Computed example of a mutant assay.
Amino acid sequence: MPQEARPPRIQDVAKLAGVSVATVSRVLSNPAIVSAATREAVRDAIRQTGYTVNFTARNLRQQQVGSVLALVPKLANPFFSQILSGIAEVLRKQGLSLLVLDTHGATDQPDLQAIAPYLNRSRSDGVIVLEGGLDPALFARPGCPPVVQACEWSEGLDAPRVLVDNAEGGRLAAAHLTGLGHRDILHLAGPRDNTLSQSRRVGFLEGLKAAGLSDTRRIEGDFSMRAGHEAAKAVMAMSRRPTAIFCDSDEIAVGLINGLVAGGLRVPDDISVMGFDDIELAAYVMPPLTTIRQHRAPLGRRAAEVLLARMQQKQHDDSTVLPVELVVRGSTAAPAR
């Protein structure tokens, strides 16, 4: 009976490439420290031999679980999809899985009892926190894996942050609307204690001040379409309606437009609306939504890279702020005379 061929080993790759086993390992785990010619030789040998990394064995040797946990508020929110995709892209190259936990579940508040059991090294090798409303004490317990904050953040949590320039987004929104000639602008803000809302508010007020405006009316809610739809009722009831509305998220703006149109107003003929985030839906609502674009996949990739550096005890940035940009579409125009 013919003997079954054994699977290719790392030694086979090293022999074919003419390098040491240690060099092959470096190409697989940290290719940046290996010359381009050596990387290509090793990768060509991997293709020829059909060698694949046994991640389970590697994780056992390194005393790793082989997964990273992402804590996400309200997973149904489409905003997080590209961030999670960016995280998964980086982890996949390292043979790590991405676990996602909805911190709110079916409630409006974080479910701390459901979260706490996952914050130990027997469940994950690292944690990316995408919610700023969690108690920092959760992550101070013995055995908690390395933590990185992304998108949202908590002032009390001592962990690296990967954010977008929310204040600049607020300034860009104010500059766009005032540049069109708007002087009576309503701000539909997120929760007052949310760090995203606070940063966007600061930037928005700075942008208004630069245009010679001292303040603006504000309605607070959450970041949901429901909040925008409810706000539309309040706007319709105002004796003096604003000529433009800046929303702290695209979901708020979509709900708002739906409510305004249902109430008989035209966007942007009667009132301009703009959002923040540039989720996929923003380009397909009617009219298409003017917004502030966050580059969410790069944010996710950078958060994963910083976490991997922490897990490997390598040098990393404590704070990364990614740029945003204004995307002008059909939901904003000069105010009607």
Rank of each mutant, 00 (worst) to 15 (best):
residue 1 M to S: 14
residue 3 Q to M: 08
residue 6 R to G: 00
residue 11 Q to L: 13
residue 15 K to H: 12
residue 16 L to T: 13
residue 23 T to M: 06
residue 24 V to Y: 06
residue 26 R to Q: 09
residue 29 S to R: 03
residue 29 S to G: 00
residue 33 I to Q: 14
residue 35 S to T: 13
residue 42 V to A: 08
residue 45 A to K: 10
residue 46 I to L: 07
residue 53 V to C: 09
residue 55 F to N: 15
residue 65 V to S: 00
residue 65 V to Y: 01
residue 66 G to H: 13
residue 69 L to H: 09
residue 69 L to M: 14
residue 72 V to P: 06
residue 73 P to T: 12
residue 74 K to N: 12
residue 76 A to P: 03
residue 76 A to E: 11
residue 76 A to R: 13
residue 78 P to C: 03
residue 78 P to I: 05
residue 81 S to Q: 15
residue 81 S to K: 13
residue 84 L to R: 11
residue 91 L to G: 05
residue 92 R to L: 06
residue 93 K to L: 15
residue 101 L to E: 08
residue 103 T to H: 09
residue 107 T to D: 11
residue 109 Q to S: 15
residue 111 D to G: 07
residue 114 A to W: 01
residue 118 Y to A: 08
residue 119 L to R: 01
residue 120 N to T: 14
residue 123 R to D: 00
residue 123 R to P: 00
residue 124 S to E: 12
residue 125 D to R: 12
residue 125 D to I: 10
residue 127 V to C: 07
residue 129 V to L: 11
residue 129 V to C: 11
residue 133 G to S: 12
residue 133 G to K: 01
residue 135 D to R: 00
residue 143 G to E: 15
residue 144 C to G: 10
residue 145 P to H: 07
residue 149 Q to K: 01
residue 150 A to Q: 12
residue 153 W to D: 04
residue 156 G to T: 01
residue 164 V to Q: 10
residue 166 N to R: 08
residue 170 G to T: 12
residue 174 A to D: 02
residue 176 H to D: 07
residue 179 G to R: 09
residue 180 L to V: 13
residue 180 L to M: 14
residue 182 H to M: 06
residue 184 D to V: 12
residue 185 I to K: 01
residue 194 N to Y: 09
residue 196 L to K: 00
residue 202 V to D: 05
residue 204 F to H: 02
residue 205 L to F: 07
residue 205 L to Q: 04
residue 210 A to M: 07
residue 213 L to R: 03
residue 213 L to V: 04
residue 213 L to N: 01
residue 214 S to E: 10
residue 219 I to Q: 03
residue 221 G to D: 06
residue 222 D to C: 10
residue 222 D to Q: 09
residue 224 S to I: 05
residue 224 S to G: 07
residue 229 H to G: 12
residue 231 A to R: 02
residue 233 K to M: 08
residue 233 K to E: 14
residue 240 R to Y: 02
residue 244 A to W: 01
residue 244 A to Q: 03
residue 244 A to M: 03
residue 245 I to V: 15
residue 246 F to K: 02
residue 248 D to E: 09
residue 248 D to S: 11
residue 249 S to A: 14
residue 254 V to Y: 09
residue 255 G to Y: 05
residue 258 N to C: 06
residue 259 G to F: 00
residue 259 G to P: 00
residue 266 R to D: 14
residue 267 V to I: 14
residue 268 P to D: 04
residue 270 D to C: 00
residue 270 D to L: 00
residue 273 V to A: 04
residue 273 V to H: 03
residue 283 A to T: 06
residue 283 A to L: 00
residue 283 A to Q: 07
residue 290 T to A: 03
residue 292 I to W: 04
residue 297 A to H: 05
residue 297 A to F: 04
residue 301 R to C: 10
residue 303 A to E: 08
residue 306 V to P: 01
residue 306 V to S: 04
residue 310 R to I: 07
residue 314 K to Q: 15
residue 316 H to N: 14
residue 317 D to P: 00
residue 320 T to G: 07
residue 321 V to T: 15
residue 325 E to C: 09
residue 332 T to A: 11
residue 332 T to H: 06
residue 335 P to Q: 13
residue 336 A to Q: 15
residue 337 R to D: 03
